[in-house]
Simulated assay, not measured.
Amino acid sequence: MSEKVAILLSTYNGQEYLAQQIESIQNQTYKDWKLYIRDDGSTDNTVKIIKEYCKSDSRIFLINSSFRDNLGPLKSFFYLLKKVQASVYFFCDQDDLWLQNKLEVMLNEYSKTNYPQLLYSDLSVVNENLQKIPDNNFEFLIGKITNQNRFVDNDIPGCVMMIDRQLRDLAVNYTKNYTYISMHDWWLALIAESFGKITFINKKLVLYRQHGNNALGAGMKSQNNIFQKLFSKKVINLRKKHIKKIYFQNNHLLEEYGDLLNHKYKKFLIEFKKCKYSSYYGRYKFLNKYSLKRTSYFQTIAFKILFIFDLKNILNEDIK
């Protein structure tokens, strides 16, 4: 494998676990990589740790416009994407651990094509001590989303993702506004679905660490009954926020990439946008036409009920 491999890492107050993550990259069986780190305004010893590794390993680089800039993970990762030139890109979280063969396995599954590509693997959810968490619902959802369902849910966290240069260029050159983008990984998955190919590698290559400071985390299996899962106020508000988020994110994709989209996805996104003005029956027909579903049975039920009967209110509501 002769690809120029870039690993992108955005850090923020990650001193506790950062060294373990960097060393798991250094211990990869595939050695020809470069790690580019952007710190997002840490106030602990994160930058000091990064600089120490930069001194000891010529493959590690600290990339910053200003250490005072706190962009958030979405803009921070896009900053790195814009700055770094490579053939393929991996995304890295500061608190996980990569299995030694992660790069090798994923690169062996990749072959150059004339269309954009995204590959992703499975993961294992672990606690702060890297012990497996058995009762979680996150790792069982990865690898379950295909086709238009990617526009209503995401099963590709950035830490298991690899993209090629073509996908990177599409994302960097046409994404002008970040306001309605949920997260960099989901946005890249939408672009890959719309213009290229997504490949799932059914191997657990990352230890996805859960602790009190996660920016995003893996949910635990709920012990509530079906009624509570579907109709508690907290859950309903979460589902409403999700619907609002995907509606505006999909509209944003249509605005940014509409002239490039093929007929299949342009038609889908236009119909999705029109659902705001449709009747209950019109939205029901739309969901059935595309067999839209989320990553779990209960989420799908809640999504369909709220989308059909409450979409107009949700889009105008300030949901807490």
Rank of each mutant, 00 (worst) to 15 (best):
L62F: 13
I7Q: 10
Q148R: 12
L35C: 03
R283K: 10
S232F: 11
K48S: 14
Y290G: 00
W33E: 04
Y89M: 03
L238M: 12
L141P: 02
D95R: 06
Y284R: 07
R150C: 06
L190A: 10
N225C: 06
E109I: 06
I49T: 07
Y290Q: 09
I133Y: 05
K34T: 14
K132N: 08
L107V: 00
A86D: 03
Q131E: 10
I181G: 07
I243M: 12
R68F: 07
S291L: 03
K102I: 00
C92A: 02
K83P: 00
Y257H: 09
E193P: 03
C275K: 05
K233W: 07
D122R: 04
G217Y: 08
K229M: 13
Q94E: 14
L141R: 15
Y284A: 13
K112A: 11
K132R: 10
Q28V: 01
S24P: 03
S279G: 02
I191Y: 07
Q228L: 13
F140D: 14
L8A: 04
L35F: 01
Q166V: 03
F90V: 08
C275H: 05
D185Y: 00
Q299T: 08
K51I: 06
K274W: 04
L141W: 13
I191S: 08
K4T: 15
L315W: 06
N224E: 15
E271L: 11
L71D: 12
R59M: 02
S10P: 00
S76F: 01
Y281H: 11
V125F: 03
L74Y: 05
K197A: 12
C54H: 08
T146A: 12
R68N: 14
F309H: 11
D164A: 04
F200L: 03
S76N: 15
L188P: 10
Y17I: 01
D122N: 13
L80V: 00
Y36H: 12
I163E: 05
K266T: 04
S111T: 06
K276I: 00
K244W: 04
I22R: 01
L216H: 13
G143C: 09
S222R: 13
L306S: 05
D153P: 06
Y281P: 01
M220W: 12
P134R: 04
V126H: 00
L74G: 03
D259R: 14
I243K: 13
